[in-house]
């Protein structure tokens, strides 16, 4: 028969193992900060494509009807997305190596699936929106679907990701209420919020 302290240790190990097994802890806070910076840079460039020399805080009356402008914006968004994904993968792989775990394990697979379903749905939905000419809804839709994806994914990673998800959804809904300011909301959601939450994660878990 074991000592009572041994039973307490058994209980503690159950708790910590259950916790560790379900959470992806290699998520890098620094990659959140950097993708926020990329998004802000992208938003500034988009402003010059679409609105310049009008002030970015003015309501935009002329919608993006030219095909070349739309293509330019899509390309720009694609670049921001690609840079963010690559940075995220690189920094998370480095963090995983430091912690002695593999990047691609049962938990990160689950995380990936949870993220992918709402993101792919949202991506297709936005393409349909653009195709049918409802340009004003593209930015709110991207914020809302991204927020839903984060909430889904947060089951398998840090709790802060969940709050980031709620913030993105709230921002997306407000953006849908006041159309014409899509770029500003997009810059706040993907730029400012990423930098903010990335910094929180960085302070709490990266070091």
């Amino acid at each position: 028969m074991k000592e009572i302290q041994e039973y307490e240790k058994d209980l503690a190990s159950i708790r910590s193992t259950m916790d560790r097994s379900g959470k992806f802890i290699s998520l890098s806070g620094m990659s959140g900060i950097l993708s926020g910076v990329y998004a802000l840079a992208g938003a500034v460039e988009a402003y010059f494509v679409v609105q310049y020399p009008q002030s970015p805080f003015l309501f935009r009356t002329d919608s993006i009807s030219e095909e070349t402008t739309l293509l330019k914006l899509l390309l720009l968004a694609g670049q921001v997305l690609l840079a963010s994904i690559l940075t995220g993968l690189f920094l998370s792989a480095r963090k995983a190596k430091k912690e002695g775990v593999s990047l691609w394990n049962a938990t990160s697979k689950q995380l990936f699936i949870n993220l992918a379903i709402p993101l792919i749905t949202g991506g297709l939905f936005i393409l349909i929106i653009l195709y049918t000419g409802h340009f004003g809804l593209a930015a709110p839709a991207s914020l809302i679907f991204y927020g839903l994806a984060l909430i889904q994914a947060s089951v398998n990673t840090y709790d802060e990701v969940r709050y980031l998800g709620f913030s993105e959804i709230a921002l997306g809904l407000i953006a849908a209420l006041i159309p014409g300011y899509g770029l500003i909301f997009w810059a706040i959601g993907f730029g400012v919020l990423h930098i903010l939450y990335g910094a929180i994660l960085y302070r709490k878990y990266d070091r």
Binding site: T17, M18, S21, S102, A106, Q110
Partner: peptide, 19 residues
């Protein structure tokens, strides 16, 4: 057992890593 109670399924290598 703790890992498998908390997750739908788990592969050998990931299990080895956690434990």
């Amino acid at each position: 057992m703790s890992v498998l109670v908390a997750n739908k399924s788990y592969d050998f290598n990931s299990l080895k890593e956690v434990v």
